[in-house]
Structure formats: C-alpha cells, structure tokens
C-alpha cells in the first residue's frame, strides 16, 4: 500500500511554502536561511522529507537519462536537403 492517507496532513501552510521552493532547493540555489529552515522542517515532517528527496531524485534521474543519438541516415539526409554534402567536415570521432 502506498501512504496516501497522509496527504491530508501534508497540505499545511508551511509545507506549501516549502513546496514552492523545491526547484531552488534541488538546483542548490535556495538561499541559506530558507534552506536551513526547510531541512529542520523535514526532520519533523515525513511527507516533506519524501517529497523533497524524490523531487531531487527525479531531477537527477532525468539529468542521467541517456541521450538518443541522431541516426546516420538522418544526418545524411540533412546534409542533402541543405545541399551541403560536399562541405561536410571529416568525421573525426
């Protein structure tokens, strides 16, 4: 079972305020005072702790998402459409 029933307790005024600042926290750009405040709050508020941790983890996981490569055929067709095939730099990779 997921811990859904706790949702009601979570929407306190304080929690809402921290949620508004989650992005800055995850990016490490939240100002120091608020950051300390949030971390203290997290010690007592299980839901915020989970939300903050999973929010940060979500951002990290997306940063690590493998990048799709452009297929060679797509690259070749691009040069052709642009009429630049003869100017294509040597493949030095």
């Amino acid at each position: 079972m997921t811990s859904e029933p706790a949702a009601d307790n979570h929407a306190t005024h304080d929690c809402r305020r921290y949620i508004d600042n989650l992005s800055d926290y995850a990016d490490g750009t939240l100002d120091d005072d608020l950051c300390r405040e949030l971390e203290t709050h997290m010690e007592h508020c299980e839901n915020c702790r989970v939300v903050v941790n999973t929010f940060t983890k979500t951002v990290t996981l997306y940063h690590q998402l493998p990048a799709p490569e452009i297929p060679n055929t797509v690259r070749e067709r691009l040069y052709k459409v642009l009429d630049l095939r003869e100017f294509r730099p040597e493949d030095d990779e």
Partner: peptide, 9 residues
C-alpha cells in the same frame, strides 16, 4: 500538489 508519498530514492 504532491499526492504520492512513496519514497523511491
């Protein structure tokens, strides 16, 4: 608003 509190970390 967060509704899901499963800690997948």
């Amino acid at each position: 608003l967060p509704r899901q509190f499963f800690d997948f970390c």
